[in-house]
Design a binder for these strands. Structure first.
Lengths: 160, 160
DNA sequence: GTTTATAGTTAGATTAATCTAACATTTTTA
DNA sequence: TAAAAATGTTAGATTAATCTAACTATAAAC
């Protein structure tokens, strides 16, 4: 099965996300979600139907097949993990993290995504809580220099 | 001026990168670099010419305008910085880091890129050399757990 | 300096993604 | 339940990006 385009991945993901809060899925809702017109949605649905990723009863409701649902969740998972990384680790603003996640989710490799996920988890499970070194990064990002008192390994200055 | 497509950015970047090692730029070289056929290049060159980003003498050489060169360098800078971050910080393999950089360079925001650059610089200028915490991340990525002896802040176990 | 090879261009097709305008169906409501 | 409103579909256009095949111009080689 040929790789989905960015656009089709967006439609799948939209359907998935809408279905998290909505019992039924309509063409109009997808159009609103993605900021496109309804004929574009109909076109995309046709393409997704051909690939066996959605089922659509004419003039009626719409749902993902198992295969479609799996793919949609994969894309959305990337979205969420990218968001966490950008916002939670790098300190990118909320809105920009979302926007970037939305774009990059279609292009990042499994390998890089896995490393990012691990990195986020590494920070989140840090035994010392919010890591000192990440506080230092925030300081560095803000002031353009490392915080004073950490010129050699360890925390010798602090401990003294 | 309307935003460039991913494709046109790739052409600009290709021309820039080729020009780093080649005195003259030819359609054929661009085609080879981007793995496309020459008519596709001619088409793209036409689009870039319209936007005032390249100059092309028919059947002859080709060069970037100042504006084109600036844009090309911006894209290529993103490429290099993404590569450094993926490969150098996250530990993504060389080939995948390159591939991902190639894709993501067209989509990442200035804000997120700036934070990644700062992060890389933060690590590179770390007073202790290669940071302990990054060693810990590598350990974590490999073994799925934090290294032993760092259950509380500081390096108390190591110092003892 | 012709011929041959290489490189570049044009023409025309295809696929994807979008749109507007017109039409069809379904749902709401008076 | 018939008219109006909302929603969905189809038809047809546009833009971008690619391709193959055919043609043209320049460069190389004999």
């Amino acid at each position: 099965m040929k790789k989905l385009t960015q656009s089709l991945e967006d439609y799948l993901e939209a359907i998935h996300v809408i279905s998290l809060t909505s019992k039924v899925i309509r063409v109009k809702e997808i159009a609103k979600f993605l900021n496109v017109k309804t004929p574009s949605v109909v076109d995309a649905i046709g393409r997704l139907t051909q690939r066996g990723l959605v089922i659509h009863e004419k003039y009626g409701y719409l749902e993902l097949t198992d295969k479609g649902s799996k793919l949609a969740r994969e894309v959305y998972d990337k979205h969420k993990n990218l968001y966490k990384f950008f916002n939670g680790i790098l300190g990118v603003s909320d809105s920009v993290s979302k926007k970037d996640a939305c774009n990059i989710e279609h292009y990042i490799s499994k390998e890089a995504m896995d490393r990012m996920i691990k990195f986020t988890k590494f920070v989140d499970t840090c035994p010392e809580g919010y890591p000192e070194w990440l506080k230092h990064f925030n300081y560095y990002a803000k002031y353009g220099r490392h915080p004073a008192g950490f010129s050699r390994k360890g925390f010798q200055n602090k401990e003294s």
